[in-house]
């Protein structure tokens, strides 16, 4: 997995690519934690390049959202693939996260 962070004003867009699984979910957690520690609490995770996410990745999305909600922040998702959206729906996460068709829409939603 590769994650690139870009600032769009107060909002940080994290563009992930590759697989998110138990081998690298901690990398995703570390990325979220670094952003939160730096005071960036309005995050967009662009999942367009992610073709595989196991429950280990979903767990880190939920953990990050819990931390962000405590500081009045949010994690919004953009462009999940069909497969990623499917596992999110199975876990009921499509009702917990705001999910957008594009990163631009996710940014504008803040």
């Amino acid at each position: 997995m590769n994650i690139q962070a870009t600032n769009a004003g107060q909002i940080t867009v994290l563009q992930a690519s590759g697989r998110i699984d138990s081998m690298n979910a901690q990398q995703l957690a570390d990325t979220f934690n670094a952003q939160i520690s730096a005071g960036q609490t309005q995050l967009v995770l662009d999942l367009a390049g992610v073709d595989y996410m196991s429950s280990a990745g979903l767990r880190e999305l939920v953990n990050a959202l819990k931390k962000l909600k405590k500081v009045a922040g949010d994690l919004r998702l953009a462009q999940p693939s069909k497969r990623v959206r499917e596992v999110m729906e199975m876990a009921g996460l499509d009702t917990i996260f705001l999910i957008f068709e594009t990163s631009a829409e996710a940014i504008d939603s803040f």
């Binding site: 939920v62 953990n63 009921g92």
Partner: peptide, 18 residues
């Protein structure tokens, strides 16, 4: 339970569900 709200969710259990 996939209908649980965010703060009531605990880690674990989703893998075997999948």
């Amino acid at each position: 339970d996939p209908s649980l709200p965010l703060l009531e969710r605990e880690n674990g259990g989703w893998g075997i569900h999948f």
